[in-house]
Amino acid sequence: MKKAIPILIAGLSGLLVLVALIWQPQLAGWLEVVLNWAVIIASVAALVAMATLLLAHTRKIIMVRHGFIYSVILIGAFLVSFVGGMTAGVENPSYLRWIAAIQQPAEASLLGLAALVMAAAALRLFHQRGWSALTVSFGISALVFLVLGLGWLQALQIPQLDIVIGYLEALPLVGMRGLLIGMGLGALLLGLRIVLGLERPYGE
């Protein structure tokens, strides 16, 4: 019985939303209430996740475990930014400037680092994956899009070449559409399994 309650709640809430979507606008009020609750719960879930993270790192500091210095940095940074936001206000321009001063360079550098790591990984790409229809077409496609990315061919302004470039740029449409439909079907089936209680991502 205990196990059945979450399954029932997931199924009922899912069905309620689906029914409310079909019977619009009669059930619009109910849909609003359910969405309101879901957003609140999702936000609290995010806060609980953060609290779990902080508790884990606090334990690490208290027990002086290996690498506790990183936990000190994390918790110190969290407290500074959280207390700052709660006292100055999260839309305070001065507060936001300090947040931006950390987030902007750190995140941009991490993304930039990804470019360097990708370049290093690409050197061994074909050694690792071998030759196949997939890898060969991937390699050729990557080279073609890198050349197009330079913008030199487009700058020539030759009408026939522009037509060819237009076709080349539209070619991934076929694969992307196939992938989207494939993934969409998978997501649809997963959603149905959750509503029917066959899939339980919230735990057994």
């Binding site: 470019a115 370049a119 030759w131 390699g139 990557a142 080279l143 890198l146 990315g149 330079l150």
Partner: peptide, 27 residues
């Protein structure tokens, strides 16, 4: 900087071609 972007793209092209050549050579 557009020139820097082009340099980065050319480096990746060279790396991918090198990867293909070395694989073919190894085979």
């Amino acid at each position: 900087h557009e020139r820097a972007l082009q340099v980065g793209l050319i480096i990746m092209m060279v790396i991918l071609i090198l990867s293909m050549i070395t694989k073919a050579e190894a085979d």
